[in-house]
Amino acid sequence: MPQVRREPLAEQAAGLLLDRIRAGEWQLGQRLPGETTLAPQLGVGRSTVREAIRQLAGRGVLASRQGAGVFVTALDAREDWDLVLRRADIASVLEARIAIEAEAAALAAERRTPTELRAISRALAGRARGAESLEEHVDADMAFHRAVVVAAHNPLLVGLFDGFVPRVRQTMVEMLRLRADFDEDADHRFHRLLHEAIGARDTAAAADLSRHHLTSLKESIA
């Protein structure tokens, strides 16, 4: 069985434990052996095993239950969200936008308040004024879409959107630079129709418009 040979010991031990979990040695919900068993297997002290477990608990893989032991709560460590977004290609980003924004548009049509509808109207006017640069145009566009997501009254969707924005912004700038045939008038017409659907509380139309628009963007870069 492989053992830790170099520093940092706790990080190395955490890596070995994670490898064994990935390999199926312990199943989801199964209890790990105790520190006295793991320490000699890994070639480290019990305190290092405790630190390795703490690291994997922080990554969502393990959970300590007082009086019961340490249990497997995930079969792999979640990746850093920013790193995942940086690695994502344009098509993947647009697919994720479809999943988030089509539902948000439907919820916005159902739940929006007069104040939120006015905020969407202002954002629509902002993107209609034109911009001096591609980046400014994308920023105005993102402001419109965020106003729609906020009107959905779902804090998780807002959190996802806000975490997504830096990569979305970069992706949209890249995509628009690649598209010589981009029709700005047609694009703005979609945003106006989405605003109208939300104002009319037409949930089906709002979701369909959002999904169709983003799907069209994805297909244009295929």
Score class of each variant (00 low, 15 high):
residue 130 G to N: 06
residue 173 V to C: 12
residue 110 E to R: 14
residue 119 A to P: 05
residue 142 M to G: 01
residue 78 R to L: 13
residue 139 D to E: 10
residue 180 A to Q: 14
residue 19 D to T: 11
residue 49 V to G: 04
residue 158 V to W: 01
residue 35 E to L: 14
residue 159 G to K: 08
residue 190 F to E: 15
residue 38 L to E: 06
residue 25 E to Y: 09
residue 189 R to N: 11
residue 23 A to Q: 09
residue 16 L to W: 10
residue 198 I to F: 01
residue 117 L to S: 10
residue 156 L to E: 13
residue 44 V to E: 06
residue 169 R to L: 11
residue 14 A to Q: 07
residue 1 M to D: 11
residue 157 L to N: 05
residue 66 Q to G: 02
residue 110 E to Q: 13
residue 84 V to H: 09
residue 112 R to D: 01
residue 34 G to M: 04
residue 188 H to Y: 09
residue 98 I to R: 15
residue 152 A to L: 07
residue 199 G to S: 12
residue 73 T to A: 09
residue 197 A to G: 01
residue 103 E to C: 05
residue 22 R to Y: 06
residue 199 G to P: 01
residue 110 E to P: 00
residue 35 E to I: 12
residue 87 R to P: 00
residue 87 R to C: 02
residue 97 R to H: 08
residue 200 A to C: 07
residue 163 G to V: 08
residue 17 L to E: 04
residue 112 R to N: 10
residue 41 Q to S: 09
residue 18 L to S: 08
residue 60 G to P: 02
residue 85 L to G: 04
residue 191 H to D: 00
residue 69 G to Q: 09
residue 46 R to L: 09
residue 118 R to Y: 03
residue 184 E to S: 08
residue 49 V to P: 04
residue 174 E to A: 05
residue 39 A to E: 10
residue 73 T to C: 13
residue 157 L to S: 07
residue 78 R to A: 15
residue 220 S to A: 15
residue 174 E to G: 00
residue 187 D to L: 01
residue 17 L to G: 02
residue 196 E to A: 13
residue 81 W to R: 06
residue 176 L to P: 06
residue 114 P to I: 05
residue 209 L to A: 04
residue 29 G to E: 07
residue 146 R to F: 00
residue 128 A to N: 03
residue 138 V to S: 02
residue 195 H to C: 05
residue 41 Q to T: 11
residue 92 S to Q: 09
residue 164 F to Y: 13
residue 29 G to W: 06
residue 73 T to K: 14
residue 134 L to T: 02
residue 190 F to W: 11
residue 211 R to P: 04
residue 166 P to A: 05
residue 2 P to G: 01
residue 49 V to K: 00
residue 131 A to P: 04
residue 37 T to W: 07
residue 136 E to G: 07
residue 23 A to M: 00
residue 58 G to T: 10
residue 58 G to D: 05
residue 97 R to Q: 11
residue 8 P to K: 05
residue 113 T to G: 10
residue 165 V to C: 08
residue 189 R to V: 11
residue 60 G to Q: 11
residue 103 E to V: 12
residue 159 G to A: 11
residue 117 L to F: 08
residue 126 G to E: 05
residue 184 E to M: 08
residue 131 A to V: 03
residue 151 A to L: 04
residue 61 V to P: 08
residue 84 V to T: 09
residue 177 R to Y: 03
residue 192 R to E: 11
residue 191 H to A: 03
residue 36 T to E: 15
residue 96 A to V: 10
residue 146 R to E: 13
residue 31 R to F: 08
residue 215 T to V: 01
residue 199 G to R: 10
residue 51 E to K: 14
residue 19 D to F: 03
